[in-house]
Protein backbone atom coordinates (compact mmCIF):
# COMPACT_ATOMS: atom_id res chain seq x y z
CA UNK A 1 0.00 0.00 0.00
CA UNK A 2 1.52 3.24 -1.11
CA UNK A 3 -0.42 5.82 0.87
CA UNK A 4 0.03 4.40 4.33
CA UNK A 5 -1.48 6.79 6.86
CA UNK A 6 1.17 6.09 9.49
CA UNK A 7 4.05 6.85 7.09
CA UNK A 8 2.65 10.32 6.53
CA UNK A 9 3.24 11.24 10.16
CA UNK A 10 6.37 12.93 11.41
CA UNK A 11 9.41 10.58 11.33
CA UNK A 12 9.94 11.09 15.06
CA UNK A 13 6.49 9.61 15.77
CA UNK A 14 7.31 6.67 13.50
CA UNK A 15 10.61 6.11 15.27
CA UNK A 16 8.97 6.29 18.70
CA UNK A 17 6.46 3.64 17.70
CA UNK A 18 9.07 1.24 16.36
CA UNK A 19 11.33 1.68 19.37
CA UNK A 20 8.39 0.74 21.61
CA UNK A 21 7.20 -2.14 19.45
CA UNK A 22 10.63 -3.67 18.95
CA UNK A 23 11.87 -3.26 22.55
CA UNK A 24 8.76 -4.81 24.03
CA UNK A 25 8.79 -7.47 21.34
CA UNK A 26 12.14 -8.64 22.69
CA UNK A 27 11.51 -8.08 26.39
CA UNK A 28 8.06 -9.62 26.73
CA UNK A 29 8.41 -13.36 26.41
CA UNK A 30 4.91 -14.16 27.61
CA UNK A 31 3.22 -16.28 24.90
CA UNK A 32 0.05 -14.16 24.77
CA UNK A 33 2.10 -11.01 24.26
CA UNK A 34 4.19 -12.67 21.59
CA UNK A 35 1.02 -13.70 19.83
CA UNK A 36 -0.22 -10.11 19.98
CA UNK A 37 3.10 -8.93 18.52
CA UNK A 38 2.99 -11.40 15.64
CA UNK A 39 -0.61 -10.56 14.90
CA UNK A 40 -0.09 -6.78 14.89
CA UNK A 41 3.15 -6.86 12.93
CA UNK A 42 1.65 -9.31 10.41
CA UNK A 43 -1.41 -7.12 9.84
CA UNK A 44 0.67 -3.97 9.38
CA UNK A 45 3.20 -5.76 7.17
CA UNK A 46 0.36 -6.92 4.95
CA UNK A 47 -1.05 -3.37 4.78
CA UNK A 48 2.33 -2.02 3.69
CA UNK A 49 3.22 -4.68 1.16
CA UNK A 50 -0.10 -5.98 -0.15
CA UNK A 51 -0.13 -9.30 -1.91
CA UNK A 52 3.67 -9.53 -1.99
CA UNK A 53 3.58 -9.31 1.80
CA UNK A 54 1.46 -12.45 2.13
CA UNK A 55 4.23 -14.44 0.47
CA UNK A 56 6.80 -13.19 2.99
CA UNK A 57 4.47 -13.85 5.90
CA UNK A 58 3.83 -17.41 4.70
CA UNK A 59 7.59 -17.93 4.41
CA UNK A 60 7.81 -17.20 8.14
CA UNK A 61 5.93 -20.41 8.97
CA UNK A 62 8.69 -22.89 8.00
CA UNK A 63 11.22 -20.60 9.69
CA UNK A 64 9.08 -20.62 12.83
CA UNK A 65 8.82 -24.42 12.84
CA UNK A 66 12.51 -24.85 12.19
CA UNK A 67 13.62 -22.64 15.08
CA UNK A 68 11.09 -24.27 17.39
CA UNK A 69 12.28 -27.80 16.64
CA UNK A 70 15.94 -26.84 16.59
CA UNK A 71 16.05 -25.17 20.01
CA UNK A 72 15.78 -28.39 22.11
CA UNK A 73 18.70 -29.87 20.16
CA UNK A 74 21.13 -27.20 21.36
CA UNK A 75 19.38 -26.57 24.65
CA UNK A 76 18.95 -29.59 26.86
CA UNK A 77 17.65 -27.94 30.01
CA UNK A 78 14.13 -28.67 31.21
CA UNK A 79 12.47 -31.18 33.50
CA UNK A 80 10.07 -33.04 31.18
CA UNK A 81 12.08 -35.30 28.87
CA UNK A 82 10.10 -36.21 25.76
CA UNK A 83 12.67 -38.64 24.33
CA UNK A 84 16.40 -39.18 24.21
CA UNK A 85 18.74 -39.47 21.29
CA UNK A 86 22.49 -40.07 21.33
CA UNK A 87 22.32 -39.78 25.11
CA UNK A 88 20.90 -36.28 24.87
CA UNK A 89 17.47 -35.40 26.25
CA UNK A 90 14.90 -33.58 24.14
CA UNK A 91 12.78 -31.68 26.63
CA UNK A 92 9.29 -30.22 26.47
CA UNK A 93 10.38 -27.00 28.20
CA UNK A 94 13.11 -26.39 25.63
CA UNK A 95 10.57 -27.01 22.90
CA UNK A 96 8.18 -24.43 24.36
CA UNK A 97 11.04 -22.04 24.82
CA UNK A 98 11.81 -22.66 21.15
CA UNK A 99 8.31 -21.50 20.29
CA UNK A 100 8.92 -18.29 22.20
CA UNK A 101 12.31 -17.71 20.57
CA UNK A 102 10.88 -18.40 17.13
CA UNK A 103 7.97 -16.06 17.77
CA UNK A 104 10.32 -13.29 18.91
CA UNK A 105 12.45 -13.85 15.86
CA UNK A 106 9.51 -13.74 13.45
CA UNK A 107 7.92 -10.66 14.95
CA UNK A 108 11.29 -8.94 14.89
CA UNK A 109 11.67 -9.68 11.18
CA UNK A 110 8.19 -8.38 10.47
CA UNK A 111 8.64 -5.21 12.53
CA UNK A 112 11.94 -4.47 10.87
CA UNK A 113 10.33 -5.12 7.49
CA UNK A 114 7.71 -2.47 8.32
CA UNK A 115 10.40 -0.17 9.71
CA UNK A 116 12.29 -0.27 6.42
CA UNK A 117 9.16 0.67 4.51
CA UNK A 118 8.08 3.46 6.83
CA UNK A 119 11.32 5.07 8.01
CA UNK A 120 13.11 5.38 4.68
CA UNK A 121 16.71 6.57 4.59
CA UNK A 122 15.84 10.18 4.01
CA UNK A 123 13.51 10.27 7.03
CA UNK A 124 16.17 8.73 9.22
CA UNK A 125 18.85 11.21 8.18
CA UNK A 126 16.34 14.00 8.54
CA UNK A 127 15.78 12.97 12.16
CA UNK A 128 19.44 12.93 13.05
CA UNK A 129 20.52 15.68 10.67
CA UNK A 130 20.73 18.31 13.39
CA UNK A 131 22.63 16.06 15.78
CA UNK A 132 25.35 15.04 13.34
CA UNK A 133 25.07 17.07 10.12
CA UNK A 134 28.24 15.72 8.49
CA UNK A 135 27.46 12.12 9.27
CA UNK A 136 23.93 12.42 7.98
CA UNK A 137 25.16 14.08 4.78
CA UNK A 138 27.60 11.21 4.33
CA UNK A 139 24.74 8.73 4.68
CA UNK A 140 22.63 10.65 2.18
CA UNK A 141 25.46 10.61 -0.33
CA UNK A 142 25.90 6.88 0.10
CA UNK A 143 22.16 6.39 -0.46
CA UNK A 144 22.52 8.25 -3.71
CA UNK A 145 25.71 6.56 -4.83
CA UNK A 146 24.55 2.97 -4.68
CA UNK A 147 21.67 3.11 -7.19
CA UNK A 148 23.79 5.43 -9.31
CA UNK A 149 26.65 2.95 -9.56
CA UNK A 150 24.29 0.07 -10.31
CA UNK A 151 22.71 2.01 -13.14
CA UNK A 152 26.08 2.94 -14.58
CA UNK A 153 27.28 -0.66 -14.34
CA UNK A 154 24.24 -1.77 -16.30
CA UNK A 155 24.97 0.86 -18.92
CA UNK A 156 28.58 -0.24 -19.27
CA UNK A 157 27.67 -3.91 -19.53
CA UNK A 158 25.08 -3.06 -22.17
CA UNK A 159 27.52 -0.94 -24.13
CA UNK A 160 30.19 -3.62 -24.02
CA UNK A 161 27.92 -6.41 -25.08
CA UNK A 162 26.68 -4.32 -28.01
CA UNK A 163 30.20 -4.26 -29.43
CA UNK A 164 30.64 -7.96 -28.84
CA UNK A 165 32.71 -7.67 -25.69
CA UNK A 166 30.08 -8.89 -23.30
CA UNK A 167 29.89 -12.30 -21.72
CA UNK A 168 27.63 -14.98 -23.09
CA UNK A 169 26.00 -17.64 -20.95
CA UNK A 170 28.42 -20.26 -22.18
CA UNK A 171 31.66 -18.37 -21.68
CA UNK A 172 34.09 -19.71 -19.11
CA UNK A 173 34.36 -18.47 -15.55
CA UNK A 174 37.73 -16.95 -16.35
CA UNK A 175 36.22 -14.86 -19.15
CA UNK A 176 33.35 -13.78 -16.95
CA UNK A 177 35.74 -12.76 -14.17
CA UNK A 178 37.92 -10.84 -16.59
CA UNK A 179 34.99 -9.00 -18.05
CA UNK A 180 33.62 -8.24 -14.60
CA UNK A 181 36.98 -6.79 -13.57
CA UNK A 182 37.00 -4.51 -16.62
CA UNK A 183 33.53 -3.26 -15.77
CA UNK A 184 34.57 -2.56 -12.19
CA UNK A 185 37.66 -0.77 -13.45
CA UNK A 186 35.61 1.49 -15.72
CA UNK A 187 33.11 2.07 -12.95
CA UNK A 188 35.82 3.17 -10.54
CA UNK A 189 37.40 5.67 -12.88
CA UNK A 190 33.97 6.94 -13.82
CA UNK A 191 32.98 7.39 -10.20
CA UNK A 192 36.26 9.16 -9.38
CA UNK A 193 35.80 11.47 -12.34
CA UNK A 194 32.25 12.22 -11.18
CA UNK A 195 33.29 12.80 -7.58
CA UNK A 196 35.56 15.66 -8.67
CA UNK A 197 32.54 17.41 -10.16
CA UNK A 198 30.49 16.61 -7.08
CA UNK A 199 33.05 18.10 -4.74
CA UNK A 200 33.33 21.18 -6.97
CA UNK A 201 29.59 21.52 -6.87
CA UNK A 202 29.56 21.15 -3.09
CA UNK A 203 32.27 23.71 -2.52
CA UNK A 204 30.74 26.16 -4.96
CA UNK A 205 27.56 26.00 -2.90
CA UNK A 206 29.40 26.96 0.22
CA UNK A 207 30.08 23.56 1.76
CA UNK A 208 32.40 24.02 4.70
CA UNK A 209 32.09 27.80 4.88
CA UNK A 210 29.86 27.86 7.95
CA UNK A 211 28.34 25.45 10.42
CA UNK A 212 25.88 23.24 8.57
CA UNK A 213 22.23 23.26 9.48
CA UNK A 214 19.76 20.64 8.40
CA UNK A 215 16.55 21.31 6.53
CA UNK A 216 13.51 19.61 8.06
CA UNK A 217 10.96 18.92 5.40
CA UNK A 218 8.57 17.45 8.00
CA UNK A 219 6.73 19.41 10.63
CA UNK A 220 5.20 18.21 13.89
CA UNK A 221 1.47 18.73 13.49
CA UNK A 222 -1.23 18.55 16.13
CA UNK A 223 -2.00 14.96 15.16
CA UNK A 224 1.67 14.09 15.61
CA UNK A 225 1.73 15.55 19.12
CA UNK A 226 -1.54 13.85 20.10
CA UNK A 227 -0.39 10.48 18.78
CA UNK A 228 3.00 10.70 20.50
CA UNK A 229 1.20 11.52 23.73
CA UNK A 230 -1.15 8.53 23.34
CA UNK A 231 1.78 6.25 22.55
CA UNK A 232 3.75 7.36 25.59
CA UNK A 233 0.68 6.92 27.77
CA UNK A 234 0.05 3.39 26.50
CA UNK A 235 3.72 2.52 26.89
CA UNK A 236 3.57 3.79 30.47
CA UNK A 237 0.63 1.51 31.25
CA UNK A 238 2.42 -1.48 29.70
CA UNK A 239 5.56 -0.75 31.73
CA UNK A 240 3.47 -0.48 34.91
CA UNK A 241 1.94 -3.94 34.38
CA UNK A 242 5.26 -5.43 33.36
CA UNK A 243 6.86 -4.06 36.53
CA UNK A 244 4.11 -5.62 38.62
CA UNK A 245 4.88 -9.03 37.21
CA UNK A 246 1.78 -9.36 35.11
CA UNK A 247 3.78 -10.40 32.08
CA UNK A 248 6.39 -12.70 33.57
CA UNK A 249 7.16 -15.91 31.79
CA UNK A 250 9.91 -18.39 32.57
CA UNK A 251 10.48 -21.50 30.55
CA UNK A 252 13.64 -23.12 31.82
CA UNK A 253 14.19 -25.29 33.69
CA UNK A 254 10.53 -25.21 34.72
CA UNK A 255 7.56 -23.56 33.10
CA UNK A 256 6.34 -20.61 35.10
CA UNK A 257 4.01 -18.45 33.07
CA UNK A 258 1.85 -15.86 34.83
CA UNK A 259 -1.75 -16.60 33.97
CA UNK A 260 -3.85 -13.82 32.46
CA UNK A 261 -6.39 -12.70 35.03
CA UNK A 262 -9.03 -9.99 35.24
CA UNK A 263 -6.48 -7.48 36.48
CA UNK A 264 -3.50 -7.85 34.20
CA UNK A 265 -5.63 -8.33 31.10
CA UNK A 266 -5.71 -4.51 31.04
CA UNK A 267 -1.97 -4.58 30.40
CA UNK A 268 -2.44 -6.98 27.54
CA UNK A 269 -5.18 -4.88 25.92
CA UNK A 270 -3.07 -1.75 26.26
CA UNK A 271 -0.14 -3.51 24.60
CA UNK A 272 -2.26 -4.79 21.73
CA UNK A 273 -3.81 -1.36 21.34
CA UNK A 274 -0.37 0.22 21.11
CA UNK A 275 0.82 -2.22 18.46
CA UNK A 276 -2.29 -1.78 16.35
CA UNK A 277 -1.98 2.02 16.12
CA UNK A 278 -0.55 2.08 12.54
CA UNK A 279 -3.11 -0.43 11.29
CA UNK A 280 -5.90 1.43 13.08
CA UNK A 281 -4.88 4.68 11.39
CA UNK A 282 -5.19 3.03 8.00
CA UNK A 283 -8.58 1.54 8.82
CA UNK A 284 -9.75 4.89 10.14
CA UNK A 285 -8.72 6.57 6.92
CA UNK A 286 -10.60 4.05 4.78
CA UNK A 287 -13.76 4.41 6.88
CA UNK A 288 -13.53 8.20 6.82
CA UNK A 289 -13.11 8.17 3.08
CA UNK A 290 -16.10 5.92 2.61
CA UNK A 291 -18.26 8.10 4.83
CA UNK A 292 -17.32 11.25 3.00
CA UNK A 293 -17.86 9.46 -0.30
CA UNK A 294 -21.34 8.38 0.69
CA UNK A 295 -22.16 11.97 1.57
CA UNK A 296 -21.46 13.21 -1.95
Amino acid sequence: MKDDAFSKLHPAVNLLFFIGAICFGVLLQHPVYLLAGIFASGVYYFMLNGRKGVKTILLMIPLFIFITLFNPIVNTRGVTVLFSYLNRPYTLEALIYGVAVAATFVLMLLWFGCYGKVLTGDKFTCLFGNLAPSLSLLLVMVFRMIPNLLQKAKQIIGARSSIGKGTAEKSSIKDKLGSGMTVIGVLTSWALEGSITTSDSMRSRGYGTSKRTSFMVYRMTKTDWILSFIMLLLLGVVIFFAANGGMNAEFLPERNITPINGFNIIGFITYLGYLLIPAALNVKEVIQWNISKSKI
Binding site: N148, T197, T198, S201, R205, G206, R212, T213, M216, V217
Partner: peptide, 30 residues
Protein backbone atom coordinates in the same frame (compact mmCIF):
# COMPACT_ATOMS: atom_id res chain seq x y z
CA UNK B 1 27.97 28.21 -10.88
CA UNK B 2 26.19 25.54 -12.94
CA UNK B 3 28.37 22.90 -14.59
CA UNK B 4 27.98 20.63 -17.61
CA UNK B 5 27.18 17.26 -16.15
CA UNK B 6 23.69 17.24 -14.65
CA UNK B 7 24.22 13.99 -12.75
CA UNK B 8 27.52 14.54 -10.95
CA UNK B 9 26.58 17.97 -9.64
CA UNK B 10 23.79 16.57 -7.53
CA UNK B 11 24.90 15.71 -4.00
CA UNK B 12 21.89 14.33 -2.15
CA UNK B 13 19.29 11.67 -2.93
CA UNK B 14 16.03 13.63 -2.67
CA UNK B 15 14.87 16.60 -4.69
CA UNK B 16 13.85 18.66 -1.65
CA UNK B 17 17.16 17.97 0.06
CA UNK B 18 19.14 19.05 -2.98
CA UNK B 19 17.19 22.30 -3.13
CA UNK B 20 18.12 22.97 0.48
CA UNK B 21 21.75 21.87 0.18
CA UNK B 22 23.26 25.30 -0.43
CA UNK B 23 21.18 26.85 2.32
CA UNK B 24 22.19 24.12 4.75
CA UNK B 25 25.85 24.77 3.95
CA UNK B 26 25.39 28.46 4.63
CA UNK B 27 23.81 27.61 7.96
CA UNK B 28 20.40 29.22 7.36
CA UNK B 29 17.66 28.70 9.94
CA UNK B 30 14.57 26.56 9.33
Amino acid sequence: YVMQNPDDQIVTDKVWHELAFGLESLGCDQ
